[in-house]
């Protein structure tokens, strides 16, 4: 079944110079195994086409079941030089949440999410 990533995981974006990183953390740790198969560098490249100029690397944090995407030349020169309204790229992770992923059959949203 197809679901928006926003149903499955949350993101946090950060900046260092002209490099942006997006951490992706599934709400349910058990979703990590199938999610990391689908959230490839190519998928992420496609989402940020035109916005990110440089290389994109993916790293895994198996201890907390999270992915980290590191995107170079992603911030128009970095917070101090960029003319982007969101010079830090604080909202970059929210764009990634729009991608649609294929959840396993019978997958149910983690809902409600009041306490997590």
């Amino acid at each position: 079944m197809q679901v928006p990533l926003r149903e499955v995981a949350f993101t946090r974006s950060g900046d260092k110079g002209d490099t942006s990183n997006i951490g992706v953390v599934p709400y349910r740790p058990s979703d990590w195994d199938w999610l990391k198969e689908q959230l490839t560098v190519d998928r992420v490249k496609h989402v940020f086409d035109g916005l990110v100029q440089g290389r994109i690397c993916r790293y895994e944090l198996p201890g907390i079941r999270a992915l980290n995407f590191v995107m170079e030349r992603a911030l128009s020169g970095g917070v101090s030089r960029s003319l982007n309204l969101d010079a830090h790229g604080k909202a970059w992770g929210n764009l990634l949440l729009s991608v649609v992923v294929e959840a396993p059959d019978g997958w149910e949203p983690y809902w409600p999410l009041v306490d997590h």
Binding site: F10, R12, G14, D15, T19, G23, Y59, L61, I64, V70
Partner: peptide, 28 residues
């Protein structure tokens, strides 16, 4: 978890002046 992944690059090699920290086996 959200803060652990904030502004890191390679989680196995987080460079600081004090130590190269490895976040990969961190558990919460």
């Amino acid at each position: 978890k959200a803060q652990l992944v904030y502004e890191i690059h390679d989680p196995a090699r987080y460079y600081t002046p004090d130590v190269t920290a490895d976040f990969t086996a961190v558990e919460v």
